[in-house]
């Protein structure tokens, strides 16, 4: 049984971002694996823990320079990795990225595809859903509990909503996108790190994938980023002073009512 995990790299969540002209300049920013993808990978590895015949494949559309981060996925326990690095791919367009990923996934004929619920860069939340659509598979998004039944070819998945927990029933194969809380991602062991160096790692060009070059290319995007800006800084606030704690609390309640008018 094959399981695919799709991932991408995003700026480190600690990073400060600067602008070059009208867009963000990521050239000197430290990148990391998208945090939500770590939960997708862990869910795949849990299945592999329980079934030694399961193989976990990590797929990423992104720069080959992110190799170290993908190798770390192998160190955690994934079996193989493919990075698709080609300037001809419109990597900012989720539908173009999904076209490429779906083509690679078809070759693996997996039972499950896991991804993070969204990239913490543009938060489109579209790529994995579009992979499901292109494969003509079902998906469940933002999953916090996942229970597959491989013998029956079915699964249940729970997502949270403002109404309460939503329970989905579905059939495999399927695309599942992970919410934090789905599991607790493991750390790489020394042994895992040593083994990772010998695991298959391929770098593909668009032509290697079998994807439709037009659908993956740059002329398809229906959304254009006009400008990126820094948000206006918040006005500096003030520390409420006062002799006793109670004085400070009373003063706080007064300003919340009279100045801020939020109580």
């Amino acid at each position: 049984m094959n399981i695919a995990v799709i991932t991408k790299v995003v700026p480190d969540t600690e990073a400060r971002l600067s602008l070059a002209g009208d867009h963000v300049d990521l050239s000197s920013v430290e990148m990391v694996i998208n945090p939500f993808d770590e939960y997708g990978l862990e869910e795949a590895l849990k299945i592999k823990d329980a079934d030694e015949n399961a193989k976990v494949h990590v797929l990423m559309v992104g720069p080959e320079s992110a190799r170290k981060l993908v190798v770390n996925c192998l160190a955690l326990g994934a079996d193989e990795a493919v990075v698709i690095d080609d300037e001809a791919i419109d990597s900012g367009n989720p539908l173009a990225v999904a076209e490429v990923l779906a083509a690679e996934i078809k070759k693996l004929d997996p039972t499950l595809v896991f991804a993070g619920k969204q990239g913490v860069d543009y938060d489109w939340g579209l790529t994995a859903v579009a992979v499901a659509q292109k494969l003509s598979w079902p998906h469940v998004g933002v999953v916090k509990e996942f229970t597959p039944d491989f013998a029956a070819g079915t699964f249940t998945a729970v997502t949270e909503s403002d109404e309460g927990d939503l329970k989905f029933n579905g059939s495999l194969p399927a695309v599942i996108t992970a919410e934090k809380g789905l599991n607790t991602p493991r750390y790489a062991s020394l042994k895992g790190i040593m083994k990772a160096k010998k695991k298959p790692f391929a770098v593909h060009k668009l032509a290697d994938t079998g994807a439709d070059p037009a659908a993956a290319g740059t002329s398809q995007s229906k959304v254009e980023e006009v400008q990126a800006m820094h948000p206006p800084a918040r006005e500096p606030g003030r520390i409420i002073e006062g002799e006793e704690v109670l004085d400070r609390v009373c003063e706080l309640v007064r300003v919340l009512r009279e100045e801020a008018k939020v109580l």
Binding site: D123, E225, V226, Q227, A228, P231
Partner: peptide, 10 residues
Amino acid sequence: LYAGKIIGKF
């Protein structure tokens, strides 16, 4: 974008 560090106009 980027968790509110940047505002994007599209």
